[in-house]
Design a protein around this nucleic acid. Structure first.
Lengths: 236, 236
DNA sequence: CGTGTGGTTGAAACTGGTCAAATTCGGTGG
DNA sequence: CCACCGAATTTGACCAGTTTCAACCACACG
């Protein structure tokens, strides 16, 4: 009863991503201040969180669901720059506007912050500012990793790399088998890997014939032989 | 005479990149503190500043010259992730080691900082910390821009994009003609654009035949018709 | 005046893209 | 419960663009 009352005022305390997200930079006490500037937001699948070029008024923390980040060219080509999962932070940008669009792939819920307020808090809490800095560095390192994938790798290497990356993030080891539930379509994966959806599909068929992966359903992949798949990534 | 004596102790004051670099975040007074933790370093062309994976002990500010950033795959393939010019900052990283290698393309000089000392100073001077944060965001935005180039663009679009980007940074408008002196080889450009050097060469020949560019020497490009070249970038 | 590095050009091979058709899957309504 | 629908995926045949391999050229340097 008291717990429920407390949770109503202080939901951050019981948040599922409390430990693995930006809020991990704050102690329980400071978290209350953080809680006060956060608003819970929920979106259905296929909705736009924000659009490339829009005024970057808000920052978000993913609590639940999968998000797709992308940048589009005027003729409709699209580069997916990343997929976000619970605990990820989103909206960091330069120059006052979002550098990419963010859309929900599944139903999703967020903590939303006014950018201005969050930045003010960062000034007050050095731990928070350092966390933001390290988030920015991590994202940068990830983007640079991905430059290598897009610029240098073959189709097979790209698909192997993407599957293993996704498994690092959302893979589950069931009965000794590494299983990945893919919330995104082949087209999303293709736009992420700089390929066409047909090529992604063909490469996955190839990996299946090689016995490296299996797919009980189209949206679930089992990585049968992770080391062999890693050999195909080109990264050593 | 007094000026010379002062400069010896306080070279930052007269630095050529004072206004366009990280030190722009500090006022003249605080700059003295900054000056004290900086060491001047000079390298010849073709030297390694630091290597991917190395311990990230130092951060650098480019004072003069051109730097190439790259990440390598074990079989020798290489993705150039960026070119740096005077005023650029270098070495920001996550996880204690450099995420990429940095090599000089031309003779170059730097300000070198111990990472630890610079970070300590950032804690003391909020302006500096904010500058670091905004540098990280800018780099991130640039990397994401480049993901689109590598993942979605055709060879022609890639070369047009790279030429215009370089001209934004190192182009000079002489007699109404936009001239770019390229310090890097075709191979560097190719590894930056995710192409082979032959393809870069062919694309440049094509642009030359179309009358969009001219090259008095192989290392100097004149962009005759910037708007037409921009039309070929695919970015609107 | 040779030598080497970097750059250009050509021809053939190949990877991945395009277009089109067939198949599977998840969900919906009879 | 089952048949059907549309979206997602797979597969096939063909084609275009890029790479590969190789020869040739130009310029800087000793």
């Amino acid at each position: 009863m008291t717990k429920t009352a407390a949770s109503r005022d202080f939901p951050c305390e019981a948040c599922s991503v409390r430990g693995c997200s930006i809020c991990a930079a704050l102690n329980d006490n400071d978290l209350r201040r953080f809680n006060d500037i956060a608003t819970a937001v929920a979106l259905a699948a296929g909705q736009t969180v924000f659009h490339e070029g829009e005024n970057d008024t808000y920052l978000f923390n993913v609590v639940d669901g999968t998000i797709r980040l992308s940048k589009a060219l005027p003729d409709g080509r699209r580069q997916v720059t990343g997929f976000l999962f619970p605990g990820d932070f989103l909206g960091l940008s330069a120059g006052g506007s979002y550098a990419y669009s963010a859309e929900t792939i599944t139903q999703a819920s967020f903590c939303r912050f006014e950018r201005r307020k969050l930045m003010d808090m960062a000034t007050l809490f050095p731990k928070l500012e350092q966390k933001l800095l390290s988030l920015a560095f991590d994202e940068l390192a990830q983007a640079q990793e991905h430059l290598v994938v897009l610029g240098q790798k073959s189709a097979t290497e790209k698909v192997a790399t993407v599957l293993l990356r996704l498994s690092d993030r959302i893979g589950a080891l069931n009965d000794g088998i590494l299983t990945v539930d893919l919330p995104m379509t082949r087209e999303d994966i293709a736009d992420y890997a700089g390929l066409t959806l047909e090529t992604v599909s063909r490469q996955m068929s190839r990996l299946r014939k090689l016995g490296l992966i299996a797919d009980p359903t189209k949206r679930q992949v089992q990585i049968i032989d992770p080391p062999a798949l890693r050999d195909l990534t080109g990264d050593l």
